[in-house]
């Protein structure tokens, strides 16, 4: 999408304006073949997505990919009610909204000393954070369940929110620290001399300078939580507390094949926010690839 538009890779200048000025004949068939292969891969990639879109507006239920005989919005009509769509989406929004807020605030605070001060604990601390970004969260869910049962946090939305926030923290802190390292120290020192304390410096000087970084961490954390299925699946029990990720799953297991049109419609509605947020993120990052760079540290 917008993602590729930016990187000024040298081949671009070769491709677009004039077909390969240096080696006119030899390259062309190769490039054509490459384009065809890539188009074929894209078609394979897009088929499942296309099926979902078509199934959601089709009046017949089928797993076959075919053009609907008549377009209809009945499927959307059928799912747009409190029980099927609005409540699960609201639950998702509450879990992910508060979870993201906690993660972002805690990681900004935690990243500041890590980025600005040197001490004996800094190095082990950073390595622990980096190590925890790699731990499979799936594996801790059973002990988390036992623990939540003992402290009576099972089926609690705040408990689940805090767990989601904690599980996103290592990566959040790591990204935030890398962004904060990019903020020059000079302005900060000026503010210190004028008598500002650490919190004032962080809030008035550092954060405004790293707003893009904060936005990236926020959106990235939110997308991750929105799609998270296993955590709420284990920690929440009451149907009225379940977020949309779990309700897609229960919808799929509870209904027979006659309702796949409705499930597709609901899946589309559920996916829409993260797709939009990703587009925003891609624009912020000037092309999606910076995240790969951030991951490399």
């Amino acid at each position: 999408m917008a993602a590729v538009a930016t990187p000024p890779a040298p081949p671009v200048s070769k491709t677009v304006p004039a077909p390969a000025p240096r080696r006119p004949r030899r390259v062309r068939p190769g490039r054509l073949a490459i384009n065809l292969v890539l188009i074929a891969v894209s078609v394979l990639y897009v088929l499942p997505l296309l099926w979902m879109v078509l199934a959601s507006v089709s009046d017949t239920n089928s797993f076959r990919l075919k053009w609907p005989s008549a377009l209809t919005l009945d499927n959307f009509d059928a799912v747009l009610n409190v029980d099927t769509t609005y409540r699960p989406m609201l639950n998702s929004l509450l879990l992910c909204g508060f979870g993201t807020a906690v993660t972002v605030v805690a990681s900004v605070l935690c990243a500041y000393p890590l980025s600005r001060y040197r001490s004996r604990v800094r190095r082990p601390f950073l390595y622990t954070i980096l190590f925890s970004t790699g731990l499979p969260i799936t594996a801790v869910m059973i002990p988390v369940y036992s623990m939540f049962v003992q402290v009576n946090l099972i089926d609690s939305m705040p408990g689940t929110t805090l767990f989601l926030a904690a599980s996103a923290l290592p990566f959040g802190i790591w990204l935030m620290k890398n962004f904060m390292d990019g903020v020059p120290i000079v302005l900060e020192e000026a503010a210190r001399i004028d008598g500002a304390n650490t919190m004032q410096v962080l809030w008035r000087v550092v954060l405004p300078l790293m707003r893009p970084g904060v936005v990236v961490v926020t959106i990235f954390t939110f997308i991750g939580m929105w799609g998270n299925f296993f955590v709420p699946f284990i920690l929440l029990l009451s149907p009225e507390k379940l977020p949309a990720s779990v309700s897609v799953f229960t919808f799929l297991s509870a209904h027979d094949r006659t309702q796949y049109g409705q499930l597709s419609a609901f899946s589309l509605l559920y996916s829409l926010p993260v797709v939009m947020l990703y587009l925003l993120l891609a624009r912020k990052l000037g092309g999606g690839f910076a995240l790969g760079g951030a991951l490399k540290g």
Partner: peptide, 13 residues
Amino acid sequence: GVVIAAWVLPEVV
């Protein structure tokens, strides 16, 4: 676009 779209979709979808 299509490769990233498949990645951005929630896991259950």
